[in-house]
Design a protein around this nucleic acid. Structure first.
Lengths: 150, 150
DNA sequence: TATTTTGGTTTCATATTGAAACTAGATGGA
DNA sequence: TCCATCTAGTTTCAATATGAAACCAAAATA
């Protein structure tokens, strides 16, 4: 009765969720994008129990999403930084953010805006596009059957 | 000791994850994008325990991501279909998928491709862009402080 | 050197998950 | 129409995961 694993699923979405599909992992990744690097920074920012944070950091390290490196400030402790694989989660995090911006707040509420550092303006909404750059709606896409080996 | 809720978080990412940040919800949404509508279809496709599926469908209904409608085939049972709010998760699902395609499979493995229904070609990788359409990397963005009410 | 901070681990109660059994209503066949 | 089966759940129960707090060693600080 362990948690159902999806690391053997044929679906790429399931494989992603198998690694980062829990309540905390993507928030840790979010904080890493915001420049947080130390255990204590994550713990304070997230308010997560230390044992849970410890476990999540271990799985993110094992998944090569985070790497443990010598602290930037010269301390003997370690920093947790995003690997390239971790940085590749940027569209995931932005997609989650934009959905939350649109659907997660009532009209009177506000949230800290994420903007283009150069011009200070909000990001464009993510668009799913075809190879030629045309915007696609869900029904414009189709899942083909699994390719079979010869 | 209930699950830590993030529905009051100031961060839009946290608010999104509060609703769909568990292991199953986004897979249900994925299946809904693929046209699945019935309890049994979801259950068979996901292999999830029926009590868990039942609970997840309830929260997705409560969150207005799915709606319960009379069955399309005339049966007395109900269909679960995506609302507009649910369809707005399309970029989230595609982002998860593309990350999984890139990082979730070893070189010999294959997965069913999702393609543009019109031309049969794979989708373009999602790009985070600024208001003018320029592609942005994580470090090109900055989180501004919470706007304070007057 | 003494004290505090950091980065964890351990312990324990509670919550959640998952498997299986169970059930009511819908459907289909004879 | 009656019976059997299917669908869509709910209930029950064991196992696992979570969260809070206590604990601890090494590092930093005074």
């Amino acid at each position: 009765m362990k948690r159902t694993r999806m690391d053997e699923a044929s679906c790429p979405i399931a494989r992603t969720l198998d690694v980062v599909g829990d309540w905390w992992s993507l928030l840790i990744v979010r904080d890493a994008f915001l420049g947080k690097r130390r255990f204590g920074e994550f713990q304070k920012s997230l308010g997560v129990a230390k044992n849970i944070l410890s476990a999540r950091l271990k799985t993110l390290l094992a998944a090569d999403i985070l790497a443990s490196v010598p602290a930037a400030d010269g301390s003997a402790f370690n920093d947790y930084v995003l690997t390239q694989k971790g940085r590749d989660l940027f569209p995931v995090v932005i997609a989650l953010r934009q959905w939350g911006e649109k659907h997660g707040f009532s009209s009177g509420e506000h949230f800290p805006p994420l903007v283009d550092a150069a011009c200070g303006k909000p990001l464009a909404p993510l668009e799913v596009r075809d190879a030629a750059g045309k915007s696609l709606k869900p029904q414009d896409t189709i899942l083909l059957p699994m390719p079979q080996e010869a």
